[in-house]
Amino acid sequence: MTIRSLYMAEEMVLEKSENLLMSKQYCSVEEYRELYEEYKKLFKQVKTLVKIADLTEQELKILFEKFSEVSRIDSLTGLYNRRYFWETFSKVWEQSIEHNFVVSLLMIDIDYFKKYNDAYGHLQGDECLKAMAVEFQRSVRRPQDMVVRFGGEEFVVLLPQSGKEAAIHVAKRLFRNVNSLYSKYSPVQLKSQMTISVGIASLYPQQEDPITLLVDKADQELYRAKEAGRNCFRLYERP
């Protein structure tokens, strides 16, 4: 038995049909019926093959979506992750340059988080991060605003097409929400009142600016906020 291709049965039907067409004499009804039955069987198989292909393609689509989500989201907090931040930020940056939009970024650090972890353990530290993440997410209202877990206890809020006033407004909301945390959560979830320090940067990106400029400036302001005693924000604005 020589197997030349996957479609030997189909090729045989074609060959027989061609021979019948080329034949100068009419063949018997049985020969036509045999060919018809063979074709019918193969057609039924095609329908099965298509259904099976649909099933596997559907599964692949679901897996692709799950994978896309996993590659974008920080599993502990449910916020976007750093990788996805940079992917999105590069587009926001380019659009801001092209259309002369202002863009603002808040760099948030949880004060004395290491001490909290040391005092209450890493599992409690995780609960604290989760509670904080919820409050950070609540502090933004627009769909284009992005809240990201940037590092261990570092978070970023990206505000496209937003200037200094909007950034300060969001920062104040952040502080209000964080301050109300301790009374909202049970002692099981949060062991002590937490505070944050925030560095804000706001500018109109220019072609010659490095893409890391906004993050670097916000980071510098965060450092200034820490130096100023924490639980506050500092702002950089380049009009």
């Binding site: 049965a9 198989q45 099965t48 093959l49 292909a53």
Partner: peptide, 16 residues
């Protein structure tokens, strides 16, 4: 566990 479309054609050939 998993098979591609060409394999499903082979399986149908086996069933034949």
């Amino acid at each position: 566990i998993y098979f591609n479309s060409s394999t499903s054609k082979v399986f149908l050939t086996i069933f034949d």
